[in-house]
Amino acid sequence: MEEEHGHGNKYGMVIDLDKCTGCGTCMVACAAENNLSVRPDESDKQHSITWMSLYKISNGKKFPDTEYSYFPRPCMHCNHHTPCVSVCPATATKIDFNTGIVSQIYARCIGCRYCMAACPYHARSFNWWDGYFPKGKGLERYLSPEVSPRMRGVVEKCSFCHHRLMRAKTKAYTENRRELEENEYITACAEACPVQAITFGDLNNPEHKVSKLAKSPYAFRLLERLGTEPKVYYLSTKDWVRKFADNYLPGEFKPVTSPKG
């Protein structure tokens, strides 16, 4: 097996936290696109399922200098030593070196939740129950055939809307193309974000907006020092926001000074 990829695509995402308003449209778009089931009690965050989560952070100052910001968090699709992939005993989660997407194959998953323990980002959720679609309520009528509803006992997570890649590729092939245009394949959250905070594209393609944004001096990733090379980048001009990305010892955090970009 190819260990690292140099060629091929490396899909990734850049989320501008200065733009993000914490409205949650990405979460709803994701849930609607990927047939996430909603249980009667979603406030139990240990058992509820979200592929895209939102974290609210505060600058910790007192009123009236308090400021809040948000971190939308999909699966990071770690590119290096992908923690979940390396621990899965059932090969139910894999990284595709042609796309960079970390997949989750429900039919293979044995529900051991080792991947959940391994994931540094809490990006994975376990189905403690079958999807909640009570008979006669009609909730199953809006389910999309592109994503299979999950059953109890399996782990699920963000797939970078892999089915959208399939859809875009199929369309390209019928038009006799082998390469996708920049915005032909984007995730549901990126498409839905009403402030255009999420940019999606190929990090290997220098022409794509994501690869330019990822090079911004304001760009950073979560827990970067673990060396997992997440493919989700964040942008923020605010030091206090960037500081949340990792656990820094006193004096360790380096603020961005006189950025070039």
Binding site: N35, Y106, A107, D130, G131, F133, K135, E140, L143, S144, P145, S148, P149, M151, G153, V154
Partner: peptide
């Protein structure tokens, strides 16, 4: 163990 009759199968 993963295909229960009550799990919806969205029609294509």
């Amino acid at each position: 163990t993963q295909n229960w009759s009550w799990l919806p199968v969205p029609q294509a």
